[in-house]
Amino acid sequence: MEEQRLDRSGRVLAAALAGLALSACEREERVMRRDPPVVAALDEAALLPGGVGGAEPLAHVALGKPYETNAYEIAQGKRLYAAMNCAGCHGDGSGGVGPSLIDGWWAYGADLPSLYATIRDGRPRGMPPYRQKLPPDSIWQLAGYVQTLASYSAKTAAPGRDDAPQTRPAENRAPATQAPLEPPAR
């Protein structure tokens, strides 16, 4: 009897530790270079007609959705935001020539596949396509990052703060904004 109880509590403990280990792995894992077939598979987002909304690529789900839950991937997206001069149109996120990314109004969808399509294929009225400039995994990093600027629910992972003047609210505010929203007056 005693042994059984010990056995069970041991198993519970082992399961808890394993769960902790797995969650830690996902959160902190850093894949510096994905295998080319995986990168290719990440391009297979099944978008609805019109390019807004749809299903994520199976590869993203199979990887454990790193572009939503992994701090490293999201932070890489932040570096790409600076490197690809997103700020040229969107400013620090609060908008400029292009629309604001922090007001919670996503004209072409707030979900990751839509954001992915927005960056990859571009959108009417000025958003250029980036499919020739970035590989799919980098576009996913960027999409994951942009989503944290005004997500409706907080993620478990966040990019780091900039060592720069703080000009806008932090990413991953919980919640940043709440739907439904009014479209911005432009």
Binding site: R27, I74, P159, G160, D162, D163
Partner: peptide, 13 residues
């Protein structure tokens, strides 16, 4: 820092 700071030291490492 800055490697271990908030901008580049992602996560809790």
């Amino acid at each position: 820092v800055p490697l271990s700071g908030p901008q580049y030291g992602y996560g809790k490492r």
